[in-house]
Amino acid sequence: MQLTVLVLEDEPPVREALTRDLGGFRDTIRIEAAEDVDDAWAIVAELDADGDRLALVLADHRLPGTSGVDFLTQLLDDPRTVHARKVLVTGQADQQDTIRAVNEAGLDRYIGKPWDPDELTDVVRDQLTEHVLEHRLDPLPHLRALDAARVMPLLRDRGDR
């Protein structure tokens, strides 16, 4: 089982830049990119078929058709995605949208465009760590993508079993 980060972004150069900036996680974490909400759901289905787990979604807020915020809200209604952590990456959200994302979609973080690559990787590492801790997953296979110090107690506990 691989933890997966899904990037939802409609502009190809931005999508490429995001996935490339996440290149450091590539060996440990499955990185997937979708250009719209339909494709994002196709990826969810593929993950399910492959036995992988959606751990984190980085979504732009403006997308053709359904908005990123709507997609993040939809995640809560599907058992395959309900546990995924949610980060909004956008340069256009106004206050109203952000409030809605926080209140309705249970948004975990907000990253403004243009982003700082170090901040992006920090946020992703932090969110993946939270995900592992929250669901008491075995940290070992994902350790290189996690905050080792924080998952150490979890490792010890599991070692004790």
Binding site: T19, R20, R26, I31, E32, A33, E35, D39, I43
Partner: peptide
């Protein structure tokens, strides 16, 4: 330019050919 779905289909072909997901992903990228 190609769609993200097309990109994934190509990557899947590579995974099938190489039998190594991580390597195939790097090749596709």
């Amino acid at each position: 330019p190609s769609s993200t779905a097309d990109d994934r289909a190509k990557r899947r072909a590579l995974i099938d050919a190489l039998g190594d997901r991580a390597l195939a992903t790097r090749m596709a990228a």
